[in-house]
Design a protein around this nucleic acid. Structure first.
Lengths: 246, 246
DNA sequence: GAGTTCATGATTGTTAACAATTTTTGTCAA
DNA sequence: TTGACAAAAATTGTTAACAATCATGAACTC
């Protein structure tokens, strides 16, 4: 039962964790914080209901309070955290009804999405997807749990990315992130969120210009994920103390 | 050629425009600003590329700079405005490629959406939609331009709302807002964004449990909107001075 | 007159101190 | 021990001053 410490937030990128300004970060900077927390959620290292205190984030990322607050606002607008007035920021904790909504939304969008990809598979860049499958296999080989979880979700966002449509990409990204939270909360067994070779089969169907098969495989794939959840016996979310383990 | 003054931002709600704290606003407060600017964009009163200076917004809404900056950050995360570093906030100015992406995304989502609505039309609340159609007719009757424009877009978000799925709702809301910007930029003639009775026909198809017809009507409706645009001869966006008319 | 340079003013970005609220801790009484 | 109450600490929300950057316009050169 892996318990997370907030310090893991900066673990994956060794440099710039201690000395903040060693490398002049590109981009508008609070995106750096957003991406880190986003990734931690995707890898289920930050459990729902975990409190993210401003002070802690400041020292974790070596950044002023303003940056942290901006990042928190952005994260809350994406539904990844919840801002409670005068109480702080907490990792979002979807309930049963929200979980159903997420899967309903994915059922609405993803089937037509892969269908479209399979129809135009000549025009789009499938190299990224084949490469991704390889990464997934490698991670499974090495039994890197967090990596497997993250890549499993990322496959779906990369499907959206393959359309080259940034709106579709952003929608899927949000839904996939939510799914990650949900799987962490309601996932009954320790199985990685996606069965072994379903991604690979979907990709093959796309490559071989078979829209019907691709769509069918994706639908059953989503159903597998959803049926792997135990909506009733919900894992009680860890609260601040248990999660941070101080 | 209606030119907008920023003061119109607060025109629709007479109270609380001058005296800021006369009524203790509910909600987390910067949402108030977000909604106002959002609405102004939907009604095409704020043209693309219009600059929103912090000082101006502060006095317009009678709010401190912090609130304004938070609101601007939220708006930029929704793609409604663009934050340029050290230069300020500007109403987003979609280009041709983005416009195509928006319509492609809508073509992906909305057909299955109305199909689903028509399939389950017994379970969902259609009263809101019929009521909305009545509003649209009334606005057309009175020739209230901004009202017509806003309601035209809102019909589509209310379709999404009818699913009761907040993710689908948020996605559609973003796409519809974008569409409003696009129609303002590329709309060639003065025609309101949606032809007269197409909304009504779509709703009838949904009510009569006819998924195929509903889907077909919606597709041709989207095509009508898109073909009413002149993608090449783009209206040059008004800059700050011309738009604000000070 | 066109173009460049530089100073000025206006605007945005950042920081730090202060205020308001919540959470914790300690104390006392039942 | 449990509960209620109050003081203290910690945390978040807000404001205002300061720093940095960009836009404007005047003076100057060619």
């Amino acid at each position: 039962m892996p318990i997370n410490r907030e310090s893991e937030l900066v673990s994956s990128n060794p440099q710039q964790s201690n000395v903040a300004a060693s490398i002049p970060r590109s981009g508008s900077d609070e995106n750096f914080i957003v991406e880190r927390i986003f990734k931690a959620v995707m890898e289920q290292r930050l459990a729902p209901n975990t409190k993210l205190s401003e002070a802690r984030l400041c020292e974790t990322f070596g950044v002023g309070r303003m940056r942290v607050r901006r990042a928190l606002l952005l994260l809350s607008s994406q539904g990844i955290i919840e801002l409670q007035s005068n109480r702080g920021a907490y990792i979002a904790c979807p309930d049963k009804s929200e979980a159903n909504d997420v899967f309903a939304a994915r059922m609405l969008i993803e089937p037509p999405l892969v269908r479209q990809l399979a129809q135009n598979s000549d025009d789009i860049d499938l190299a990224i997807l084949t490469e991704h499958i390889a990464h997934e296999d490698a991670a499974r080989e090495k039994k890197e749990r967090t990596e497997i979880i993250r890549l499993s979700g990322e496959f779906h966002t990369k499907l959206a990315q393959a359309t080259g449509n940034k709106f579709i990409f952003r929608m899927m990204r949000e839904l996939v992130t939510r799914t990650s939270l949900i799987v962490g909360l309601f996932g009954s067994s320790e199985n990685a969120s996606c069965p072994d070779d379903e991604h690979s089969n979907i990709l093959k169907a796309i490559q071989s210009n078979n829209p019907e098969l691709a769509e069918e495989l994706l639908i059953s794939h989503l159903n597998h994920i959803q049926s792997g959840l135990d909506m009733e016996a919900r894992q009680e979310p860890q609260d601040d103390l248990a999660a941070i383990l101080r």
